[in-house]
Simulated assay, not measured.
Amino acid sequence: MDLREKKTLRAIRTAFLQLRGQRPLEKITVKELCELAEISKATFYIHYRDLYDLSERLQKEAVAAIYHSISHPDWAVSSPADFTRELFAAFQSQKPLIDILFSGTQESVLPKSIEAELRSHIFETQPELEGNVRFSTLLTYEVQGGYYSFFENRERFGDSAVAEEIVRGVQALSREMDAEPSF
């Protein structure tokens, strides 16, 4: 990729994030994005099918950055509380981007994508867990339940306090699930 193309893609990304930070994806037009990025619509369409394609690619980049900052994804199985702490640190590392790319109608994309990445990794290394209802339930609770609880309560109680309460909940659920017989 030459320097000019890199600058164009950076301008598109910057303009999109600026516009997306101000309003929902559905309210942004290619025309206004191109004006802000100082490119033609033809140039935009060389790189992206539409705004949803651009948004999806940026979301995938953010999901990859979050997932790759989790240094111990296997802790989701062996140490759920430690995994949960690491997961929230990963979310925090990308918070400004999360707030822009995963708001409004896009809110559910991030936790579902992170959970899918984790499942894929864990099932590659531990295929016996694929049909395990306890593992599946706990992972969904850790990722999706924790995510929504964290972002719903963090402003009111603070990041650390909410994250630690979620960790306590994961620990309690994990102990409870280990104590109860499976159906």
Rank of each mutant, 00 (worst) to 15 (best):
A64G: 04
R134N: 13
D159A: 13
A90G: 07
P111N: 05
R57H: 11
A76N: 07
E26S: 10
L9M: 06
L19C: 00
E176L: 14
V109L: 06
Q171L: 13
S149A: 15
V167K: 01
S78K: 10
G131W: 08
S120I: 02
D74S: 08
R168F: 12
Y48R: 03
K6H: 06
R156C: 10
L87Y: 02
D53Q: 10
D74L: 03
R85D: 09
D2R: 03
D82P: 05
H121D: 01
T8D: 03
L54Q: 08
Y141L: 12
E61P: 00
F102Y: 15
K7Q: 13
I98R: 09
L87P: 00
Y45Q: 05
S103E: 04
E164Y: 14
I39K: 11
N132K: 07
K41M: 05
V170K: 05
T29C: 02
Y67F: 08
G21D: 06
I12P: 03
V30Q: 14
K112L: 14
E117A: 07
V109D: 07
E128H: 10
L97S: 09
V143H: 01
T43L: 04
F102V: 09
F135W: 13
C34R: 13
I166N: 07
E155A: 14
A65G: 09
S55L: 07
P96A: 06
G21Q: 01
S182E: 12
D50E: 12
E61Q: 06
T14A: 11
A163T: 09
P127L: 15
E176G: 11
K112T: 08
S160P: 01
E180T: 05
E61F: 03
R23C: 07
A161P: 04
I28Y: 12
L101T: 04
R23W: 09
A42N: 15
V167P: 05
I166D: 02
M177C: 09
K27E: 12
R13Y: 03
P96F: 01
E164A: 03
G158L: 07
E180H: 07
S182P: 00
Y141F: 13
E130G: 02
R119A: 09
E176S: 13
A161I: 15
L110V: 04
I28D: 07
L19E: 11
L97P: 04
L51E: 11
A172E: 04
T84D: 00
L58A: 06
S108Q: 12
L3Q: 06
Y141R: 07
T29D: 00
Y147D: 03
H121Q: 02
L129C: 02
E155S: 15
Q106N: 14
P111W: 15
S174L: 07
F102A: 04
A90H: 00
G104I: 10
C34H: 08
A116P: 00
D53H: 14
E32H: 05
A65W: 06
